[in-house]
């Protein structure tokens, strides 16, 4: 536990110190929210939801922010590898599982903080207030997204030699995981050939979970969301830990 805490602490410290990264990665979500949210608010009508499109995509945008931050945090292991720091950690008498768990929790924490910063900004822009319980539910789902995708980042980083494939992977994450999720469109209205893909995307359940917390309305039952996201988190930790065990410094 001490070791997990040590790794977690370093990871969170590094995140909190990277001011430019924190601020820089608010840009894209805010931009999307303003352009899509305000731009389409009066045009798009979400079935079964009185609120406009803006309220619909806010959970999706928050999820996106958590997603990017967590994948990025996981992949940061490659930098540790390149800066030699990973070698110094791996030569210590600690198990790789502890290192991996610490790193995952650290990345997830950073991702949740990033998501929270965005949520606060959104409240300022004009999201209607949510109940404490709803807020906590949303944070819980953010944490699950954070764990799942930090672990995914670690799994990818464990197999990568250097940063060359980085852009490719980030694009994959953006287009496939975020794009297919129900972050920007309602699942119910999807054509038959996309719907299964969206339902196969774990982020969909994260987004729906946050949406349930923030607006009380979701197209997937919150328990289903919880079950799927929790399973994904556990699965990704197992896969990440397995691959990380074989990492070559």
């Amino acid at each position: 536990m001490d070791i997990v805490y040590t790794i977690w602490l370093r990871s969170v410290k590094r995140y909190l110190r990277s001011k430019s990264r924190i601020i820089g990665s608010l840009g894209m979500p805010l931009f999307l929210m303003l352009v899509l949210g305000f731009g389409l608010d009066s045009v798009v009508q979400i079935p079964g939801m009185e609120e406009g499109y803006m309220d619909f995509i806010i959970p999706g945008i928050v999820a996106m922010s958590v997603l990017f931050t967590s994948v990025f945090s996981g992949i940061q292991i490659i930098w540790d590898k390149q800066f030699g720091f990973l070698k110094a950690t791996l030569v210590a008498p600690v198990s790789r599982l502890e290192i991996m768990i610490g790193q995952t929790l650290g990345g997830a924490t950073a991702a949740v903080i990033q998501g929270l910063i965005l949520m606060v900004l959104v409240l300022l822009i004009g999201l209607h207030p949510v109940s404490i319980a709803g807020f906590l539910i949303a944070v819980g789902f953010m944490a699950l997204i954070g764990v799942t995708f930090t672990a995914l980042g670690i799994a990818i980083a464990s197999r990568m030699e250097d940063m060359h494939g980085f852009q490719l992977i980030m694009n994959f994450i953006v287009f496939v995981i975020f794009g297919l999720s129900g972050a920007l469109f309602p699942i119910d209205g999807l054509p038959d050939y996309i719907r299964p893909l969206t339902l196969a995307d774990p982020l969909t359940y994260g987004v729906e979970g946050i949406r349930y917390g923030l607006s009380g309305i979701a197209q997937v039952h919150p328990f289903t969301c919880l079950a799927v996201m929790a399973s994904c988190a556990v699965l990704m930790i197992v896969v990440g830990a397995y691959l990380f065990r074989k990492i070559q410094s």
Binding site: T6, R10, R14, D80, K87, A88
Partner: peptide
């Protein structure tokens, strides 16, 4: 093999905890 984003003390402390 140091973490440049940490201070010298923090690098030492991290190691000591490990």
């Amino acid at each position: 093999s140091l973490d440049e984003e940490l201070t010298a003390y923090e690098n030492m402390d991290f190691h000591g905890r490990l």
